[in-house]
Nucleic acid binder design. Structure first.
Length: 492
RNA sequence: GCCGCCUUAGCUCAGUAGGUUAGAGCGCCGGUUUGUGGAACCGGAGGUCCUUGGUUCGAGACCAAGAGGCGGUACCA
């Protein structure tokens, strides 16, 4: 019982929903961002970086005289008592930036940005409280041409990350169409109908998960799930439910067919007609640039859950290589999305500032890509130069520099321990080659290079330690001035 | 927020009916081997048994509350 008095140590742990990212993940995410940035840059977009903190009201949060900030954001009070919060997306900060620098910016202002965003919500599998988004937006362009540009950009990013045509699809819809349908069903296209419209959007968003029946319940009175939780419905009448569900299944593979169907569906609604007209414009530009239905389709079942979209909306989806029974590619999910949001900037200025953009979740996209190509691996481990003799450290670093100059990743062992330790380190790092140069080699003017992969292979056939240690077949020596060339040869 | 499951070593888990000093495998560190990563053998470190309270002569085990984790559902401006 009389345990020795233990020092109270802090427990090494991280807050839930916040992740440490390993080198492999970091490298694949960096490649993804680089590919996207190069597409945006080539299209004339400019990079922008905004701070992680914004004033809470800028983010669209009202924090009246409350001690606790609203849930959903990480907020704190500055020393002047003002509420600041970590950004939860990159769009609200962009709206602030544009409004703040409006006169100095050439419109349309088109920028791209990647960075961490923060959401104070319950984390789940694949859902974190900090995650990286990569956005491109176009502010100040009212027409569907700007939306089409974003759609083509999204398709180009898919291509730039190495996806073949058929491996992805951009699905396009238009909020105005649904507004038109709802208007015809008695939901006014005004402020009063906003909450109801949002409920409709969220219900449609759950189509793939709940099926038509579940969505019908959510569009009507409401729905109770298996755990007994009740979700209030959008309270549409039976005809409304039918109209909305009919709309979500109205799209076909051919964009022209879809437009014809929709034109008859929206009838005389002005919002609906405007939506169809925009799709026509989008289709015309896509057609001229050869973005066929194998890359971009019109799909009335995608809506995006957010309330701030006002016009065309779209999602980028990865299609797995596997086909379902009917021979169609299986959906593995949306990796990004975007759309038109005409009211976000005008919040700050009281003057119309139309905007449209595209955003993808970097981690989700990167891990989906990794699932598609598991064989694609990251950076190869560096050549490890063992610190055999501490007197020769200068020479070791010089050798490492020579390797780097030849484009080979290399490092000198700077830790503690004998050669056995150092080789064990090299092994753990996954290095293919280790360089050994001690007094023997120095005398002969040579360098010993050990092939660790070959050594591991040979070890399988050897069970005796003495034999294993004396076996030198996995290593070779070369003259000091042949060093870099030999490494090159052996790493091939 | 609501519902369910779970919590013993770094990891995966065992722990007999409530009974001294809480175990195993893997991993880690060291040695056999101070110029060679594997294997084998030997040794070692590492635990507030999630926390608090209760029942009991006695709790890792039984009871209660709380915390944390996992899953589902809702929310996600």
């Amino acid at each position: 019982m009389a345990k020795k008095n233990k020092i109270q140590r802090p427990k090494a742990r991280r807050p839930r929903g916040f992740e440490d990212k390993s080198s492999d993940i970091l490298r694949s995410e960096a490649r993804l961002i680089e590919a996207a940035f190069s597409v945006y840059d080539a299209n004339g977009f400019e990079p922008l970086q905004t701070p992680a903190f914004e004033y809470a009201d800028v983010l669209g949060k009202f924090l009246p005289d409350e001690d606790r900030p609203n849930v959903g954001v990480f907020a704190l009070r500055d020393d002047d008592e003002q509420w600041m919060a970590l950004r939860y997306d990159l769009t609200a900060p962009l709206a602030r930036f544009v409004a703040e620098n409006y006169d100095a910016l050439a419109k349309p202002y088109r920028r791209y940005q990647a960075g961490s965003v923060f959401r104070n919500e319950k984390p789940g599998p694949g859902r974190f409280r900090e995650f990286v988004q990569c956005d491109a937006d176009s502010v100040g362009a009212p027409g569907a041409a700007a939306d089409t540009e974003m759609i083509m950009l999204a398709a180009d990013v898919m291509k730039a990350v190495g996806l073949e045509t058929g491996g992805y699809v951009i699905r396009v819809n238009n909020r105005k169409l649904l507004d038109g349908i709802l208007e015809a069903s008695g939901v006014p296209n005004t402020e009063e109908g906003a909450i109801q419209r949002l409920k409709v959007l969220r219900a449609i968003d759950k189509l793939d998960r709940l099926g038509a029946d579940g969505v019908a319940a959510l569009l009507g009175e409401g729905r109770e799930d298996e755990s007994g939780d009740y979700t209030e419905g959008a309270k549409l009448n039976a005809a409304g439910v039918k109209a909305v569900l009919g709309f979500t299944t109205a799209s076909a593979t051919d964009r022209g067919d879809t437009m014809n169907t929709l034109a008859s569906l929206v009838g005389s609604s002005s919002a609906g007609q405007a939506g169809v007209d925009e799709l026509k414009m989008i289709d015309a530009i896509l057609g001229a640039c050869d973005y066929g239905p194998d890359r971009v389709v019109f799909d009335t079942s995608i809506v995006r859950g957010l309330g701030y979209y006002t016009g065309p909306v779209f999602e980028a989806e990865l299609l797995a290589d596997i086909k379902d029974k009917k021979g169609r590619p299986v959906r593995i999910g949306s990796v990004g999305g975007g759309g038109r949001y005409d009211d976000l900037v005008s919040r700050f200025r009281g003057q119309a500032v139309p905007a449209t953009g595209f955003s993808f979740g970097v981690s989700r996209f990167a891990s989906a890509l990794a699932r598609l190509n598991p064989e694609q691996q990251g950076e190869s481990a560096p050549v490890i130069i063992c610190a055999f003799d501490r007197e020769l450290m200068g020479e070791y670093f010089k050798m490492a520099a020579e390797l780097r100059a030849a484009g080979i990743r290399a490092e000198v062992f700077v830790g503690a321990g004998n050669v056995a330790k150092q080789l064990k380190y090299a092994d753990r790092r996954g290095a293919k080659l280790a360089v050994l140069m001690g007094s023997d080699e120095l005398e002969r003017g040579e360098v010993t290079i050990k092939d660790l992969v070959l050594g591991a292979e040979m070890a399988k056939a050897i069970s005796d330690n003495k034999e294993w240690r004396e076996n030198k077949d996995m290593q070779r020596s070369c003259k000091r001035d042949q060093f870099v060339a030999t490494i090159k040869e052996m790493s091939a």
